[in-house]
């Protein structure tokens, strides 16, 4: 991995783990719109926003590189 990639992969990997653990461990009894479904929607939005930031630096290199 290059540059900051390893930190990003760690953060995103932890988020994916949370998407498995949190709804099954803590939200199983919440039978309302703000339960597991809301958590997963928030999770996906956070991942999308993080990916927007993670890919911000992608660019074409100066000619000759």
């Amino acid at each position: 991995m290059v540059g900051s990639e390893k930190w990003w992969s760690l953060l995103l990997g932890l988020l994916v783990l949370a998407a498995y653990i949190v709804p099954y461990k803590w939200l199983g009894q919440v039978r309302a719109w703000y339960g597991a479904g809301f958590f997963w929607a928030l999770f996906a939005l956070v991942v999308i926003l993080l990916l927007v930031r993670f890919t911000t630096g992608w660019k074409e290199p100066p000619k000759g590189v």
Binding site: V2, G3, S4, E5, W8, G57, W58, P61
Partner: peptide, 22 residues
């Protein structure tokens, strides 16, 4: 490939800092 990735700005943006030192 690592050198090319860095030249294209991959892994340059940190989680809290921008840009990340290459």
């Amino acid at each position: 490939l690592r050198n090319e990735l860095l030249a294209h700005g991959v892994g340059r943006v940190g989680i809290f800092r921008s840009p990340h030192p290459a």
